[in-house]
Amino acid sequence: MMRISAAVEALVPEMTAWRHHLHAHPELGYEEHGTQAFVAGKLKEFGVDEVVTGMAGTGVVGVIRGKRPGNRSIGLRADMDALPITELTGKPYASTNPGRMHACGHDGHTTMLLGAARHLSQSRDFAGSVVLIFQPAEEGGAGARKMIEDGLFERFPVEVVYGMHNWPQMPLGSFAMHRGPVMAATDEIRIEIAGKGCHAAMPHTGVDPVVAAAQLVSALQNIISRETDPMDRAVLSITAINAGSAFNVVPDTATLKGTVRTFRADTRKRVVGRIREMVEAFAKAFGVAMELHHREGYPPTINHDEQAAFGAEVAAGIVGEPNVARDQLPSMGGEDFSFMLEKVPGAYIWMGVGGAEEGRILHNAKYDFNDAALPVGVSWWTGLVERHLSAG
């Protein structure tokens, strides 16, 4: 049985309304102007001591000071941006912004941190300060890095920082807290191939970039399947092949796009280096020109042991020890909270919301955050604060 305080339960109707409002008005990274105004307005309404907007453009930071004196501090982070997906949930509060949707539950993340802000600003039963970080542009825009570059931790220094993500593959009322790696590093690759177009019936008169592309796709998988230790997690996925438009024309060019996911720095460097070597070798072998474009994305999200253990203990106090997984396998997905964990000790937890068995998975047009999880998330946030700042 979950341990949710009466004060937090009393917030559920309001939080549900906030979440539905945010869900109906999704905004992409660095475009969260309406969300920023909504969040800042609520924080001021709650009596949060300090509310700052504009960090990373559309970010919001709030500070709540406890009623007992203390110099300690803790940071809590929620992401706010949506995805460029057309919603198919059919909900009465479905997206009113065409082609935009909260398909990753960031509306729920924002709402839970707002609920925690409401509760903490009323109780203030702690010694020190809470820094509430409402971050833009997690979905590929590196909003966490931008907030840090804008002086987040210089202006609002914290001892530790925590993040949370809803996880449909886990049942409601469960958590998973990892020691060490949680999410992978995310790199993008694009390979431009230039050949010589010709009539498809006379391929010998041209240089076919499609054949070169097809052979390269197969060969690249050898880097993972035969050159990488099976115990060292790594993924190389070619996700797009673009070439030509007619059945009887060998095109001039072809383009491959894909992603590399790794945890270890040396593996990350080696895999990208081997891709570059293969590109050079295949260009020579097939008589085409090939150029690799590599964009380094988010670093791996690595939890700090002490904070991971503490976050798991707080979670167990809410849902019970059997419902907290401490040995869950990490995900090959990426997360820009990683930038914050490179600067400040902390941890990132997965909170079960259920629904995956019904097809409601992250980044899906039919996904909708489970409102029943709102008080669970708020309880975890407030538990972290009240235990970490129990004494000045």
Results as ranks from 00 to 15, higher is better:
residue 140 G to T: 06
residue 134 F to Q: 01
residue 157 P to F: 13
residue 136 P to I: 14
residue 154 E to V: 14
residue 157 P to W: 15
residue 158 V to R: 13
residue 146 K to S: 03
residue 145 R to Q: 15
residue 167 W to E: 14
residue 161 V to F: 08
residue 145 R to H: 10
residue 132 L to G: 09
residue 165 H to F: 02
residue 159 E to K: 04
residue 168 P to H: 00
residue 169 Q to H: 03
residue 160 V to Y: 05
residue 128 G to W: 11
residue 160 V to Q: 10
residue 137 A to I: 13
residue 133 I to H: 06
residue 160 V to A: 11
residue 139 E to H: 10
residue 152 L to R: 14
residue 149 E to V: 05
residue 143 G to I: 04
residue 154 E to T: 15
residue 160 V to H: 11
residue 127 A to Y: 12
residue 129 S to C: 09
residue 127 A to R: 11
residue 136 P to R: 13
residue 141 G to P: 08
residue 129 S to T: 15
residue 127 A to C: 05
residue 141 G to L: 07
residue 132 L to W: 05
residue 150 D to K: 10
residue 164 M to A: 02
residue 145 R to M: 14
residue 156 F to Q: 04
residue 170 M to I: 05
residue 162 Y to W: 07
residue 167 W to N: 03
residue 157 P to V: 12
residue 141 G to Y: 04
residue 164 M to C: 03
residue 152 L to M: 09
residue 140 G to L: 08
residue 134 F to A: 04
residue 163 G to R: 00
residue 128 G to S: 04
residue 152 L to T: 13
residue 152 L to W: 10
residue 146 K to L: 07
residue 152 L to G: 03
residue 142 A to P: 00
residue 135 Q to T: 09
residue 148 I to R: 11
residue 137 A to P: 12
residue 132 L to M: 08
residue 134 F to I: 04
residue 162 Y to C: 02
residue 135 Q to Y: 14
residue 151 G to K: 12
residue 152 L to Q: 09
residue 167 W to D: 02
residue 131 V to A: 08
residue 138 E to C: 10
residue 131 V to T: 15
residue 135 Q to F: 14
residue 145 R to P: 00
residue 148 I to S: 02
residue 167 W to S: 01
residue 153 F to L: 14
residue 162 Y to R: 06
residue 144 A to C: 14
residue 163 G to A: 01
residue 162 Y to I: 05
residue 150 D to R: 11
residue 154 E to K: 15
residue 146 K to I: 12
residue 140 G to V: 08
residue 136 P to D: 10
residue 148 I to K: 12
residue 154 E to Q: 15
